[in-house]
Design a protein around this nucleic acid. Structure first.
Lengths: 233, 233
DNA sequence: GTTAATAAATGTAATTTATACATTAATTTC
DNA sequence: GAAATTAATGTATAAATTACATTTATTAAC
């Protein structure tokens, strides 16, 4: 802090800090985004990421968890800071710095009543309407991050149910990378990491034969991480 | 923004936004960090990252560039957001959210007079004294980022002079990764990317034979980036 | 109960990439 | 011209990635 704090903020002007969540879900074949209608002027009623001001006695992280909880009823969700959006003029109403955070949620787990009550909606990525302020940019940035990150860390699993099939997992990666993958090579690679536990159960919703269900083995993953392991698909 | 702004900040309490720069340099064989003595209470006079409050009409990015300019005289330097430090109690003086940004500079380019005037000092990484608040954590985080990032993007070059030798470049990567590299494999790999231009000049400061100087070919790099290229060492 | 339909599961050979490793070359100083 | 010093270079082996086609398990329809 290079200067005395008295030089700033001694006017009526106030600096606000907000957080906005880019909430991704995955439904069979498509990545989806949860948005709602902004509840404060200016631009009230327009589509917006789900966010909030950070309270004076609240950690920035906690603020993001709080809004996620308020709107979806979910806690203990994968959420990670994306970046700060800090242009002086990004919000016509206030001087507001927003910390973007992206979350990956299991799309069947959220509290439908709560979501409905808050007027929130899931949109397929390609159908997302225009968002207020720089929120469109936030979504683009978050997607980029998701793509990059998914290559080296098994965050994709955060978007799937506890139990999932390999074809499901492959479809998820195909959606993230926007490309077709070869089933044999894909299976070889994910299984080679030894972090998937094959169950004795099949999911028959999408084929007659049924596909075996797997669980992600967090314990083994953590063990491997410590010994310098690098997850890559 | 999920709630009305009136709910917050209507008290005497104010939210401050600051930015702190983790400034790295590289000198022959070691990575160095530029720090100075904090000029505001509390903890005035203790070693601190170089930072400032963000002005009410100033972009967060611009604030970081401003302090870097004030202390080193440098502009157009590689600087990138690291992450937000947002615990409610991270600073005993104020409620202050700080955006960490790390910068890579050519250690011979900075303005020595300015740096001296501000009481700033370069420290070898292993000799950095304790820093105020969470600044030590910021340095650790920035180093992690540098390591990860250097694998896939040629940011290492930002730490070297315009013209550099391959042994210099190798020493830099050895310092970043904290490991010895094989000269033959290293050269093969960096040269394979076709983004280094060999000059007809030698640097003889560190050997009798002298080592050829190279320049980073930014134009070719951008061209390759567009066609899906991925720099990796 | 046989057949048709459907998605799941599997192996191998060829190519590319990464690794390990030791000698010669250029130059200066004595 | 000999000694000292760092720069520069190639090859064989191992590992990882890619491309590619058939069989299997199950249900629904007849």
């Amino acid at each position: 802090m290079a200067e005395d704090v008295k030089d700033f903020y001694s006017r009526e002007d106030k600096m606000y800090v907000a957080t906005d969540c880019i909430i991704f879900g995955f439904d069979e074949a498509k990545i989806k985004l949860l948005i709602f209608k902004r509840r404060v002027e200016p631009l009230k009623g327009q589509w917006s990421l789900i966010g909030s001001f950070v309270r004076i006695d609240e950690d920035v992280d906690s603020a993001a968890q709080r809004v996620l909880m308020e709107i979806t009823g979910l806690e203990n969700v994968f959420m990670e800071e994306l970046k700060t959006y800090g242009s002086a003029n990004r919000d016509p109403g206030y001087r507001c710095v927003s910390i973007g955070q992206y979350a990956l949620i299991r799309i069947n787990d959220y509290d439908r009543e709560l979501v409905e009550k808050h007027g929130a909606h899931w949109y397929d990525l390609e159908d997302v309407p225009d968002l207020v302020l720089d929120h469109g940019q936030m979504v683009n940035d978050a997607l980029e991050r998701l793509k990059r990150k998914a290559r080296f860390q098994p965050i994709g699993f955060e978007l799937l149910p506890e139990k999932f099939t390999l074809p499901q997992l492959q479809k998820l990666y195909e959606a993230i990378y926007q490309t077709k993958l070869d089933a044999r090579n894909f299976r070889k690679k994910v299984l080679s990491h030894n972090v998937l536990e094959k169950l004795d159960e099949k999911d028959k919703t999408s084929s007659r034969r049924g596909a075996f269900l797997y669980k992600f083995d967090h314990k083994n993953y953590r063990r491997l991480l410590k010994s310098g392991f690098n997850f890559e698909i």
